[in-house]
Amino acid sequence: MTMIKKIFDFYLDASIHVALAIFSLVHVTALTLNITVQIELYFFIFFGSVGCYNFVKFGVEAEKYILVVNTYQKNIQFFSFGCLLVAGYQLFFLSERVFVWLFILAAVTGLYALPVLPRHKNFRSFSGLKILIVAAVWAGATVLLPAISVLDEISWNVKIETIQRFLFVLILLVPFEIRDLKYDSAALKTLPQRVGVNGTKMIGYGWTILFYAITFLKTDLNLVHIAVKTILFIVLLLMLLKTGTSQKKYFSSFWVEAIPLFWWLLFIISKKCTI
């Protein structure tokens, strides 16, 4: 049992779980927009997500990510570098258009993590900016990247899907923001620090309603989309309802981050049921 727990904790700590969540959202985009995304882009996003997330988590200061003393973190570091090598190999198969967007997303991620400003260590140090950057990067990686790799132009439905994905990630970040309230520096001025736990949850409810409502702005709406989004809407509301400052160990790190996988499974099951 101890070995299983160690493997599970490594699965979470090495960002494999969150990378699977991102991977699943790319496929949700493909299913939603009815496009075929090349397998190399899937692999790049999955393995690149592992490396980037671990860099942001463990290497906010670059020298700490290079000179690792802790054996457990060193194992994660080696695993991350291996994933980055695999992701780098996939770059040879991607188009120039995808490269441009990858550069933009990589630049934003770097500004988020690295100390590039004189008065702020990095962009995440700006009050209230952290969750907006994370949501924007997720939306760009899981909607815009797969869309521009196939489509010649950004259609209305792609724009709506991007806005929805941005809101979806903001909603998922609410439990993390509330969980970290007791650890975050007051200088960060996070959402719970500004409006309190209940105020943050109310904002989360508002984002959830907006996320669901703009589904009906799509021009290719069908019963599968409505059914999946309705179930997801209920799950997100229940998640926010259960969110508090005292959370069980895996509530945010596993169950909340599993919601994208749940969305993907809902889509797969719904598609099969309509065939």
Rank of each mutant, 00 (worst) to 15 (best):
I4S: 00
I4D: 01
K5N: 12
I7V: 15
I7L: 12
L12E: 05
A14E: 03
S15W: 02
H17W: 15
V18E: 10
A19M: 05
L20Y: 12
F23S: 04
L25D: 02
H27I: 09
V28Q: 09
I35D: 04
E40V: 07
E40N: 15
Y42D: 04
F43S: 11
F43Q: 08
F44C: 11
I45H: 03
F46R: 02
G51S: 15
Y53F: 13
Y53G: 11
K57Q: 08
F58G: 14
G59D: 10
V60Y: 15
E61M: 03
K74Q: 06
F79N: 00
F81M: 10
C83M: 14
A87T: 09
L91E: 00
F93I: 02
S95L: 14
S95D: 12
F99R: 08
F99E: 03
V100S: 07
F103N: 04
V108Y: 08
T109E: 01
L111P: 01
A113R: 13
P115N: 04
P115V: 00
V116L: 12
V116W: 03
R119F: 10
R119I: 00
N122C: 04
R124G: 01
F126E: 06
F126G: 05
F126P: 03
S127F: 04
L129K: 12
A136Q: 01
W138V: 01
W138M: 07
W138K: 05
A139T: 04
A139M: 06
A141D: 01
P146D: 03
A147H: 05
S149M: 10
V150L: 06
L151V: 05
E153W: 11
W156V: 00
T162Y: 13
Q164F: 11
F166V: 03
F166S: 09
L167E: 12
F168Q: 13
L173E: 12
V174G: 14
V174Q: 14
P175A: 09
L181T: 09
L181W: 13
D184E: 10
D184Q: 09
S185E: 15
A186K: 14
A186P: 14
K189D: 04
T190R: 07
L191G: 02
P192S: 02
V195G: 03
N198K: 14
G199R: 09
G199E: 06
K201E: 00
M202W: 09
I203L: 12
I203W: 05
I203F: 04
Y205C: 06
G206W: 01
F211N: 09
Y212W: 15
Y212E: 04
K218P: 08
T219E: 13
D220G: 06
V224W: 00
V228Q: 10
T230R: 06
L232G: 03
I234L: 13
V235C: 11
L238C: 07
M239T: 04
M239Q: 11
T245S: 13
K248Y: 08
Y250W: 11
Y250M: 06
F251R: 11
W255H: 13
E257Y: 11
E257A: 10
A258M: 14
I259E: 07
P260A: 10
L265P: 06
I269T: 15
I269S: 05
